[in-house]
Design a protein around this nucleic acid. Structure first.
Lengths: 160, 160
DNA sequence: CCTGAAAACATACGGTG
DNA sequence: CACCGTATGTTTTCAGG
C-alpha cells in the first residue's frame, strides 16, 4: 500500500509522545512495543493503544521492508515529466498510469509539465518500453531524466 | 537508515522463495516469521535463517513505518534541480547537502542539471529558506518544481 | 493510563536428509 | 547446507481496574 492522493485529512501530530513513537517506528519499523514503551516511558499496553490509533487514523500508513532496488532487478531509475497532448481533454493520467508497477511515484507539479513520475526499470530497453506505454495510456508527451546515481534516499526524517 | 549510493554490490535475487519473502516484507514490514512460513511453505526457522541472510547481505536494508507527510508537518514537497556554479570545482554537493534533513533524496542525473533533490518542507517560507541553504552549501543554482499533489507513492512493487 | 495472565511469537539448539 | 521440530524466553493481546 502506501498510496497517497485524495486520502483522509491527517492533521500534524501535536502530542510529543506520539511523535516519539512515530520517529522510532520510522527508524525501525519492526521495533517492539516494549522498545517503544522504554523510549516513551509508557507501559506496553498504553503504547499499543497509541500505535493502533496512529495506524487507524492514517498517520502510520503501513510498514515496509526497504529493499535494495538492484536486488529487485530494477537498477535503472528515471524521472519522467509528462504533458497532456490535448489540454482540452479530461486529465485522468494518474488513474491511467496507476496500473504500471514500474511507476513508483506520480506527482502533479507546478511548472512546464503536468506530472512528474519516478520510475524504476530493469534496463534501458525496459525504460523505452515503459515510456511508450506511458505515452500510449495517458496521451501525453514525455521528457525523461535518467538517474545516474542515487546518493541518498531516506524515509524523510524530520527534526524530532 | 535506508541510505544508498556507494554501498555493497547486491546481485538480483534469483531464488523464488527469497523473492516471496522479500515481497511479503515489502507489503508488510511487520509480518511475522510465521506468516512468512505460511506463504513460503517453509518452517519458521528456515524462514528466519533466510530473512537474516537477506538482512545481512544488504538485500533488505531495514524496516520503516510509512508515515503521512502532513502528519509530520511537512505538507509541501518539491523537486529541486541543481547545477554547480563553477563546473571546474570539485563536485561534492551530495556530501554538503546530506546534513539537510528536509532533503529526502539526492540523485545525480543525466541531462541539463547535475542533481535532482526531492525535498519536503513545512511551508513555502521553509522552502525558500531551504533553497537558499542548498545554494549556499553546495555553490549551485537551483530550479525548483513544486509538487501540487501526490497521486501515489509506493515502495516500488515489482511483478512478483 | 496501568497491571497481569494467556496466547502468539521469536530465538536457539539438536537432529535429519 | 538447508531444512525441521521442539524448548525457552520474549512479545503481543486483552481483560479488568
Amino acid at each position: 500500500m502506501t498510496s497517497d492522493g485524495p486520502g483522509l485529512p491527517v492533521a500534524p501530530i501535536d502530542d510529543p509522545v506520539d511523535r516519539k513513537i512515530v520517529a522510532a517506528l520510522r527508524a525501525d519499523g519492526r521495533g517492539t512495543l516494549k522498545s517503544l514503551a522504554d523510549v516513551t516511558g509508557l507501559s506496553v499496553s498504553a503504547v499499543q493503544a497509541r500505535v493502533r490509533r496512529l495506524e487507524t487514523s492514517g498517520v502510520i500508513r503501513g510498514y515496509a521492508a526497504t529493499v535494495d532496488p538492484e536486488a529487485l532487478g530494477l537498477p535503472l531509475a528515471a524521472l519522467v515529466a509528462i504533458t497532456p497532448l490535448d489540454p482540452a481533454q479530461p486529465d485522468d493520467a494518474p488513474e491511467r498510469l496507476a496500473g504500471l508497477s514500474e511507476i513508483e511515484a506520480c506527482h502533479s507539479v507546478a511548472g512546464d509539465d503536468a506530472y512528474v513520475l519516478f520510475v524504476r526499470v530493469a534496463s534501458p530497453t525496459a525504460l523505452e518500453q515503459l515510456i511508450r506505454e506511458i505515452r500510449r495510456r495517458a496521451h501525453v508527451t514525455t521528457r525523461t531524466t535518467v538517474v545516474l546515481q542515487t546518493f541518498f534516499e531516506r524515509p524523510a526524517a524530520p527534526g524530532s
